[in-house]
């Protein structure tokens, strides 16, 4: 089970790519999907590498990302 999980609000995402560039582990990339506004949305291209660090969500200008962390790793970090 990956340590982190990113859920993309596809209608909020504007495909700016800032999260892709900011992720330290190369987890994110553009998907082949376009949203109702015509933006190409991101997805987890390599979900197994995600640590749930939330750097991507912090740089996202459209509050399109929700981050989840695997419970044992949250306790470990606290």
């Amino acid at each position: 089970m990956p340590k982190g999980l990113v859920i993309v609000d596809k209608e909020r995402c504007k495909g700016c790519g800032l999260c892709i560039e900011a992720c330290p582990f190369g987890v994110l990339d553009f998907s082949s999907e376009y949203n109702a506004s015509g933006y190409r949305v991101v997805h987890m291209a390599h979900p197994e590498k995600c640590t749930g660090c939330a750097v991507c969500a912090n740089v996202c200008p459209d509050v399109a990302l929700e981050i989840y962390r695997e419970e044992s790793s949250v306790r470990g970090a606290a």
């Binding site: 999980l5 912090n58 929700e66 981050i67 989840y68 695997e70 419970e71």
Partner: peptide, 11 residues
């Protein structure tokens, strides 16, 4: 919230 996970960042 997916099973086994805790939300750490949201709107």
């Amino acid at each position: 919230v997916p099973k086994g996970y805790t939300r750490v960042f949201s709107k």
